[in-house]
Simulated scan of single mutants.
Amino acid sequence: MARFVIEGEWSGYRSSQSRIVHREVITEKRAERVKNLSAIVYTDGTCLYVSVRKAEPRERIQEIHGYSSLIRQAEATGKDYVTVAELNPARAA
């Protein structure tokens, strides 16, 4: 049974602020659903870049559950590029 890792990297306002803010171990089935998702764009112009990779054998993965619900909402759209306004239309108004 293969393990996969979703990583979310926040772009920051400058390149020096870029950092990993989400890391989660997932199943192969979920990896297939989320592999096309590449970015979630915020209203302030920053992005959460999402990537999926196969975990190495015996790799220890320190999970960071910072954006689990946001990534699940974006995954449900089936798009590769999503804005936060699309995910939460009530908050955008």
Rank of each mutant, 00 (worst) to 15 (best):
V84S: 08
Q17L: 04
S15L: 02
I64Y: 10
R3E: 12
N88W: 10
S16T: 15
E56A: 07
V50E: 01
R60K: 14
K54Q: 14
A2P: 15
A55V: 10
E32H: 13
I64W: 09
C47A: 08
N36R: 15
T43N: 13
G8D: 01
P89I: 04
A76K: 15
E86D: 04
M1C: 00
D44G: 03
Y42I: 00
N36T: 09
Q17V: 02
Y81R: 10
T43W: 05
E75P: 01
E9F: 07
S38C: 07
E63N: 00
S11Q: 03
K29M: 08
V52E: 02
E9P: 03
D44C: 06
A90V: 14
K54G: 07
M1W: 12
R33G: 03
E75F: 05
E9N: 12
Y81F: 10
D44N: 15
G8P: 05
V34M: 13
R23C: 06
S51T: 10
E9L: 10
V84D: 05
E63Q: 14
C47L: 11
E32K: 14
E28M: 07
S51D: 06
E32V: 08
R23V: 06
A2G: 01
K54H: 04
A31D: 00
I64S: 10
V41G: 02
R19Q: 12
G45H: 06
T77H: 09
I40Q: 03
E86R: 05
L48R: 00
R14C: 08
Y81L: 09
Q17H: 13
E75R: 07
V21T: 11
I40M: 05
T83R: 15
E59M: 03
A31N: 03
V21K: 11
I6F: 02
G78Y: 13
G8E: 03
I71H: 00
V34W: 10
I26P: 00
G8V: 01
V21D: 11
E63I: 06
S68M: 03
S69Y: 13
Q73F: 15
R91E: 14
Y67E: 13
E24Q: 10
E9Q: 11
T27Q: 05
S69W: 11
L87K: 09
V34Q: 05
A74N: 10
E32N: 12
G78E: 09
A74P: 15
E86Q: 09
E32W: 04
S15G: 14
A2D: 07
S15N: 15
K35S: 13
L70W: 03
Y42T: 00
S15W: 10
